[in-house]
Structure formats: structure tokens, C-alpha cells
Amino acid sequence: LGPKYVGLWDFKSRTDEELSFRAGDVFHVARKEEQWWWATLLDEAGGAVAQGYVPHNYLAERE
């Protein structure tokens, strides 16, 4: 699936296409579209919880 990303700060969605998340949440990014990335929010087991657009500057690649 490629690298995983972690949320740096809490983010509250403003549209139906955006995905709310908390700092520390883990994502798989499917598409990078300039300022907004289409991402899947993952649970602790790595299963998909939700999908939506997230601001790229709120995520960091997980080491």
C-alpha cells in the first residue's frame, strides 16, 4: 500500500468530501492533489475506517 502517514494536528472537516481526524491518527494516502490528499483513515489493526480529503500539511510520513 505504500507509506503510511500520521496526523500532526486535529482537523475538522468543512465539507462532505473532507475527513475529520485527530492528531496521531494513521492514514494511507491514495492520491496527492496539490493542497488536498485523498486518504483512508486506518484503525489500529490497519483496517479502513473512512475516506476523504485531508490537508497535506496536516500529515507527516510515518517512519
Rank of each mutant, 00 (worst) to 15 (best):
A48S: 10
V49M: 09
G52M: 03
H56P: 12
P3H: 11
G52A: 04
G24R: 00
H28Q: 11
L1E: 14
D10Q: 03
S20R: 01
G47P: 02
K32C: 07
V26H: 09
V49D: 03
D16L: 09
L42D: 01
Q35P: 07
W36Q: 10
K32V: 04
Y5H: 04
A48I: 14
E17Y: 12
A60S: 10
W37L: 05
V29L: 02
Q51C: 09
A60V: 14
A60W: 09
W9C: 12
G46I: 12
R22Y: 10
L42V: 06
Y5W: 10
D10L: 09
S20L: 04
K4Y: 15
D16C: 10
G7P: 02
T40E: 09
W9E: 06
G47W: 09
T40W: 12
V26G: 03
Y58M: 08
A30W: 15
P55K: 05
R22A: 09
R62V: 15
R62T: 14
V54C: 09
L19C: 06
S20K: 02
S13E: 02
H56Q: 12
G2W: 15
V49I: 12
A23I: 05
T40Q: 08
K4C: 13
E33Q: 08
V29G: 00
V49C: 06
R31H: 10
D10A: 04
Y53E: 01
A39I: 05
W37P: 00
D43M: 04
E33V: 07
A45G: 11
T40D: 02
R31D: 06
L1R: 10
E44Q: 10
G46N: 06
E17L: 14
K12W: 13
L1K: 13
Y53W: 15
L59Q: 02
S13V: 01
F11T: 01
E33W: 08
A23Y: 05
R22K: 15
E17K: 14
Q51S: 15
G52K: 05
A45S: 13
P55D: 05
D10N: 07
W37G: 00
K4R: 11
L41H: 01
Y53V: 02
V49W: 04
F21K: 00
N57Y: 10
E33N: 08
F21V: 04
V26A: 06
W38G: 00
G2Q: 14
R62A: 15
P55A: 04
A45W: 14
L42E: 03
K12Q: 15
A45R: 14
Y53Q: 05
V29Q: 01
Y58V: 02
A39C: 08
W36R: 15
V6W: 07
R62C: 15
D10T: 05
L42T: 03
